[in-house]
């Protein structure tokens, strides 16, 4: 089994067609994890309602094995930060993350969780949960449709299936150098102290710079002439 990582892909597919399924321990493990994501039952604002809608009959998150919403962080392995994280709430969110067992994943759902969204100019709104927590997936939208959350969960499952458990580039949970807990910010006289976790996030050096200088490489100019 340990050599399966080096088995070439075409041979594996060929065998699968003949009814012989060969897999590595790693991908079997990841396959199991990806299809039994237990999210933390934890909603902050508007996006939480769309998150609930995604678990309901029409969209049925259970089809992806992610319907077991656990009220206790100890039993959860996916935190969907759904809604505005205020400065008053942020320490609790970090504490909940710390209490979750490894391996754990964070989805920032909605504009507010990603960047503070439309409320980011305010005195009590955290400009993105990625200042304190390592976010695995961002789902923009205000709020994202339930399908967008499903799309995000599918993306996350792909990410988990592609994770390595050993060697360089291994997943965060398997890397002993990566902490499983992050410091909890404190209430200060005008906001949180520290305002961000410098290990996870740094303020952009030039906020006015074009965020996307190599943009042409991403989307080519369309000409059909």
């Amino acid at each position: 089994m340990t050599t399966m990582g080096t088995t070439d892909e075409s041979l594996r597919q060929d065998l699968a067609r003949r009814g012989v399924h060969v897999t590595s321990l790693e991908s079997l493990y990841n396959w199991g994890r990806a299809h039994s994501l237990w999210p933390l039952q934890f909603g902050l604002a508007c996006c939480a309602i769309e998150m609930i809608a995604a678990t309901m009959a029409r969209h049925d998150l259970a089809r992806f094995g992610a319907e077991v919403f656990r009220p206790s962080p100890r039993q959860a392995d996916l935190m969907i930060v759904a809604g505005t994280v205020t400065k008053k709430m942020a320490p609790m969110v970090v504490r909940l993350y710390n209490q979750m067992a490894n391996p754990k994943y964070v989805i920032a759902m909605g504009a507010c969780a990603i960047s503070g969204g439309p409320f980011r100019e305010g005195y009590n709104v955290l400009r993105g949960i990625d200042r304190y927590l390592p976010v695995d997936l961002y789902i923009p939208g205000c709020p994202p449709r339930p399908e967008a959350l499903l799309h995000g969960v599918i993306r996350l499952q792909e990410l988990i299936r592609g994770e390595k458990l050993s060697g360089p580039g291994r997943s965060r949970a398997a890397d002993p150098a990566v902490p499983g807990e992050y410091p909890i910010p404190n209430y200060g006289p005008a906001g949180l102290r520290p305002p961000f976790n410098p290990d996870l996030w740094q303020p952009p050096s030039d906020p006015d710079a074009a965020p996307d200088d190599g943009s042409d490489a991403v989307t080519p100019r369309e000409t059909t002439a």
């Binding site: 005008a190 906001g191 305002p195």
Partner: peptide, 15 residues
């Protein structure tokens, strides 16, 4: 005026 926190050095972190 809310102080701009992003420019502040990260001090007194629990870390």
């Amino acid at each position: 005026v809310a102080p701009d926190e992003d420019g502040l050095p990260a001090i007194e972190t629990a870390a």
